[in-house]
């Protein structure tokens, strides 16, 4: 099925694309906050690259959504308030320390890699094509962040403690990546977007043994299962900074 989607599936897909794009643009913004502040020069360069990649991926998803809805990507990013954003809370949390940043990126990278592995078989051709494009770049992310998580977790007493603190904080939030929205069942049934509970199983089967061999303890906390319309107070603060230039700009502004 590569042709027309019915109105209901089209709406469901537009909603899902917004979720994908918002996750990447907000995570990319948080990563970009390290530019000029990372622990060492090499990592400053690396995190700036990761941020740029994530924002580039966000643009691809926003453009696919634009094809369905006519909504301009810049308008969508710079002129929506927090209540209209559909990212998970995990990506909007403040950047924290380096352990927190690398762990958040790692947990997201595994999710993204497994998702893309499935999306390349989507029955909606534009989605499958975009996934094939993005998947190649993710290979570098995954290697980088998994190396850091392992190295810090098995490093000094302090680096281990910081990584464990990061995991204690992030683990319940990560579950929200797999919370289905109202249209996701129909998308999965049509083979357009993968089933999120199967994706969650695959994600846990990857991250759990990895974290455990890095001598981290997976917390027993209650998972976050609220919908993507719910946000922490950190998102409006982030958006205030991210959107200010676009919002004060007038049509006459010359760069």
């Amino acid at each position: 099925m590569t042709g027309q989607l019915d109105a209901q599936l089209q709406q469901a897909l537009a909603d899902r694309l917004l979720a994908l794009a918002d996750d990447e643009v907000i995570l990319g913004h948080r990563d970009a906050e390290w530019t000029g502040h990372a622990p060492i020069l090499e990592e400053d360069i690396a995190i700036a690259n990761l941020a740029q990649d994530e924002i580039g991926h966000a643009l691809i998803w926003y453009q696919l959504r634009e094809d369905l809805t006519g909504r301009d990507p810049d308008e969508t990013v710079y002129f929506r308030d927090a209540s209209a954003y559909r990212n998970v809370q995990m990506v909007e949390l403040p950047k924290g320390d380096w352990a927190f940043t690398m762990l958040r990126q790692y947990l997201f990278d595994v999710y993204e890699r497994l998702l893309l592995d499935r999306l390349v078989a989507s029955t909606h051709a534009p989605l499958a094509e975009a996934a094939a494009k993005i998947r190649r770049e993710e290979i570098y992310h995954y290697r980088h962040t998994s190396t850091w998580v392992e190295r810090l977790a098995l490093g000094t007493e302090e680096s281990h403690r910081r990584m464990q603190d990061g995991l204690d904080r992030l683990w319940p939030f990560a579950a929200q990546l797999f919370v289905a929205g109202p249209g996701d069942g129909a998308l999965a049934a049509a083979g357009i977007f993968p089933d999120l509970s199967e994706l969650q199983q695959a994600w846990e089967a990857t991250v759990r043994p990895f974290l455990e061999q890095a001598e981290l303890t997976i917390p027993q906390a209650e998972p976050l299962t609220v919908g993507r319309e719910r946000h922490t107070h950190w998102l409006p603060i982030l958006l205030g900074e991210m959107q200010v230039v676009a919002r004060v700009e007038t049509p006459e502004t010359a760069w």
Binding site: E42, I45, A46, A48, N49, D53, G56, Y140, R143
Partner: peptide, 9 residues
Amino acid sequence: VTNTFGSTL
């Protein structure tokens, strides 16, 4: 290799 990331993507 000293960094798999560089001055451009």
